[in-house]
């Protein structure tokens, strides 16, 4: 097995899971997003999104801040610097593996 392809085995599994990958990618392009935006963009259920966000928060990739807007709860999520770096590394590794397979 080529070294680049073997590197795929070591991809960050916390990010690699499709639902979490969509969350992290969405957060990567913005400074912060609230729970409703992520809910709409990812198409997940509230419980599912909540559980994936909790996992990302536990891994130190996402920072979650709970506030209120006119007495309505609002959860603001942002990618931490560790999460941003991890996502960039994940992308680079995946790209490298795909390029080596194509070439």
């Amino acid at each position: 097995m080529k070294q680049e392809i073997r590197a795929l085995v070591d991809v960050d599994r916390l990010i690699h899971e499709p639902a979490r990958l969509v969350i992290v990618t969405t957060l990567y392009f913005v400074e912060a997003a609230d729970f409703l935006y992520l809910l709409r963009e990812t198409g997940m259920t509230k419980g599912n999104l909540s559980s994936h966000l909790a996992k990302l928060e536990a891994g130190g990739y996402v920072e979650i801040n709970k506030t209120y807007r006119e007495k309505i709860p609002r959860t603001i999520c942002r990618l931490s610097s560790a999460g941003r770096t991890a996502f960039q590394q994940y992308r680079a590794r995946l790209k490298k593996a795909v390029t080596s397979m194509e070439g």
Binding site: E31, A32, A33, D34, L36, Y37, L38, R40, E41
Partner: peptide
């Protein structure tokens, strides 16, 4: 804040 955020959520764009 009145019409969009309850329907589409909120994002803060990167500076």
């Amino acid at each position: 804040s009145r019409f969009v955020e309850p329907r589409a959520g909120l994002i803060v764009l990167r500076k």
